[in-house]
Amino acid sequence: MIKVEKLTKRFTPEKGLFDVNFEVKKGEVFGYIGPNGAGKSTTIRHLMGFMEPDDGISSINGLDCWSKSSEVQKRVGYLPGEIVFLEGMTGLEFLKLMQKMRRHRENKKRDELIERFQLDVKTPIRKMSKGMKQKVGIIAAFMHEPDVLILDEPTSGLDPLMQRVFIDLILEEKKNNKTIVMSSHSFQEIERTCDSAGIIKDGRLVALENMHSLRTVQRRVFEVKVKNDTDIESILGSGLQTESVGEKTLHVSVQGNDQEFIQLLSRCEVEHLDTRPQDLEDIFMHYYDRREVGK
């Protein structure tokens, strides 16, 4: 359904996109992960036909995203990363304008989504909070029931409850055989919805894997507090990568060897167990390291 082949766009020799390839089949959800400025939005801009590639091609349903953009957009719902709307409108006026510009007359899905996200559509857009604007954007992307959804950081600005509502919506659309590309810098979000994911860094795709194999390389750090010193020794003595941080407290890195970790803990008297919040670099150390070596 969506095909990106050898996509290259050079802004400067260092910045841009370089030889990016991936494919998303119909009914699949593809997660696009990378730190800020890695090239996620640039790739999406190519898919939307806002940019012309220097090299390579991107296509949706066999149509070139640059030369056939208005044709492509008939079947696509788009949520931009920047949430800015036209000035001087209420949420509903904006949604109605979008509907008219799409010549879409069905209000059912729109109203259902408004209800679902509990959006007060009568509020003027300039008075809306970031989260409310994000909801307007999401509704605008989904309301015409497109076959393909391209979402640039869809959950930014949403509170945890609304993030759940959104994830449910994605899973539902997936059941309806929609093809979805979503970018994110949060692994958790991608993990719960996507079939496969691409990891991008500095304009280059460093990994393209299905969710299962990504999980096995995902590195998580647990903070373990145990009751006595013998437990500390047994953890330090195990094959796991550990780091002592304080009295009876250890950081243990787990990467695909969850089973081993659990078994080890079962032999200890654990007082407290916590996961440390991590950034992307942490999670995908595996891939990022590989790139450094490759240089």
Binding site: M48, F50, S69, Q73, K74, G77, Y78, L86, M98, M101
Partner: peptide
């Protein structure tokens, strides 16, 4: 500059 053009161009209307 602000980015709202994205919504207009995301509709099936040509540039």
């Amino acid at each position: 500059d602000q980015g709202s053009m994205a919504y207009l161009l995301a509709t099936p209307n040509s540039r």
